[in-house]
Amino acid sequence: MKLLPHWVSRPALVALLAALVVGAVLPKVLGLSVYSQNQVTETFLFVAAALAWNWMGGYLGQVSFGHSAMFGLGGFISARLLLALHLPFWLAWIVGGLVAAAYALVWGHPTLRLRGPYFSIATIGVGEATRLVMTYWEDLTGGSSGLSLPITPGLKSELYWWALALMALVIAASYSLRKSTFGLGLLAIKSDVDAAADVGISPTLMQDIVLLLSGFTVGVCGAFYASYQNFIEPGDMFGFDRSISFVLMAVIGGVGTIIGPALGAVVFVMLRQYLIGSYPQLYLGIYGLLLIVVILFEPLGMMGLFFRIARRFGLMRPEVEATLEAKAAVGGGAADPGARQGGAP
């Protein structure tokens, strides 16, 4: 009997399980401080968010600058549910994610008729409009003074495990989305929409599905963030910085690759901690610079660098490397102009 679909390779499964075990025992072995463990929790969370952004921006080539809308909505819906109904927090996260997904579909179904830079520009509008509405919608978000959640003792260390599980699920989903027949269809849409429609792929339907999945996951991440921070306010949750951060993580790591955005998120969280501490006025500028450098010299980010090194030392069979790199770069023309706009702030 075959338990797994044909595209699940044994090495990938083993790698995921190994990563999970390492993640599980690491805090104990290293004897991490509470502070460091919280940093790791946050990293896990943003790995999940960056990968979910990448389903749209990388797999589909539709670079969104409006994902803060779903992040924030997931956060505030779940916070309201926790405050009003005292739901178990995982249930509040799921409901937050569902509302975020529904919202994503409302703005995304029409906007996804646009492609490439046009879509990206539209998403900037969506993100900013959402931020403004949410800032003034005090009944939901508490306005500029934000919302405080009840503090539960011991919750933060428990959230470490939830973050690990969330990240593992999203990594598995990223892998499935890329390797399955569905993922092949996404590549086809990314690289030639007309040809895709000709062979019977429905671009509208598939884009909507990816949008729902991405919106749901980012919404859950926002909800998790709310539980983790205990305090959220719309300027931070719905901010343009927030949207840009997802783009940055993916671009630094490697847009469109399976694991690149995860690496990018790790770098991003570490770098931000250092930059905010040392250069609080400059840190967004430094990110802009980093973005420009990556796009100019290594459009595939850290994954591109990795491929380059592996090739230099003959660690990778050329045909494997060629196809891996190719898959990520498919339709890169659509991703590039979008990513470049990120240099503006």
């Binding site: 690289s191 792929i201 498919v330």
Partner: peptide, 13 residues
């Protein structure tokens, strides 16, 4: 065709 996909993937699509 999808130039960066393999021949087999093009056919499977």
């Amino acid at each position: 065709l999808w130039p960066l996909l393999t021949v087999r993937e093009n056919l499977e699509l």
